[in-house]
Nucleic acid binder design. Structure first.
Lengths: 162, 162
DNA sequence: TAACACCCTGTAGTCACTCCAGGGTCAAGC
DNA sequence: GCTTGACCCTGGAGTGACTACAGGGTGTTA
């Protein structure tokens, strides 16, 4: 089949297919007389495998390693376990930080209900204040140098709340 | 303070600070006689604000918009709400897909316990089989064209299970 | 004087695509 | 035979948010 048909069959953009070929994930297919790529069932399977792995958020580098295991089934599979374990660990860590993110954003969102000017916006105040708090490592320690550009917008935005 | 000190105070890499300047998020600081950047408290606050927003996974483009609200507090804040709402929606959608991902990966991981060859690895079989199932839209529909490169590794890896 | 930490600019690389310009190929309709 | 339009080709650039590096200058200490 042609590249468009392969794309249709797998739901993969043809630019992405060519990209996978260039990246060495899909073997170069045969060509027709007119130069068009001619794919077979093996390419379709391989592409589906790649997309399935990508749906599991496995990096292309790791997909490449998995494809080598597929090509060499006699090899010890310990590395596959490691790869999936690492992937799982990454996903779990990201999941945890996304949960925290969601909490923070929800809290932030609840700070602003009715419409008013940005100067009175609880969200903006919260963002400025939180950033201010995080930067306090500096304020507690090193004293500010000469700062002729001061009178910061941020500080005044923060103060307007009080 | 110099760029290194600002970086230390905020925990931001100096390359990233320069990048924010080039991207128009941090105003160009004054320069010392030797050409070194000279930052003040306002820069520190602004940088802390940017990092706090980035920790909330807000894009630099949106951070830029928020910074404009900080600079113009008289503006109506409706857009801030929208921005945070959109951000929250994005985070929640990603959270949902990450949860699904975690479930899939856990299931996958449980397919392989003891050590053995890749050819007998449940993880690999599962990946191949799942990809095969997803590609079946093609197998059910269009019949395979001439494919002289067939006898796919994937198919044999899948079969070895049975 | 040398070593070393720090700073400068400008450019290129990362990941996984996505888009585009400028061209060739092919089947259908006039 | 000609045009239209869908499809294909290559090579290169752009995305976001950094990160790394080359090749140089500056400042302090030994």
């Amino acid at each position: 089949m042609r590249i468009g048909e392969l794309g249709q069959a797998t739901g993969v953009d043809i630019e992405t297919i060519r990209y996978y070929e260039k990246a060495g994930l899909l073997p170069e297919p045969a060509r027709r007389n007119n130069g068009y790529r001619a794919y077979g069932a093996s390419h379709l399977e391989r592409l589906a495998f790649i997309r399935h792995c990508r749906a599991l958020d496995i990096s292309l580098a790791d997909v490449k390693r998995l494809l080598e295991f597929v090509a060499h089934p006699e090899v010890d599979c310990g590395d596959i376990d490691c790869l999936i374990d690492a992937q799982l660990a990454r996903v779990r860590a990201r999941l945890e930080s996304m949960r925290a993110l969601e909490r923070q954003l929800s809290a932030l969102r609840s700070r602003c209900g009715a419409r008013h000017s940005a100067g009175d916006c609880g969200i903006l105040h919260e963002l400025v204040a939180a950033a201010h708090g995080e930067a306090c490592a500096y304020h507690r320690g090193v004293p500010p140098e000469q700062d002729k550009t001061a009178t910061s917008d941020m500080a005044s935005a923060g103060r307007r709340k009080a």
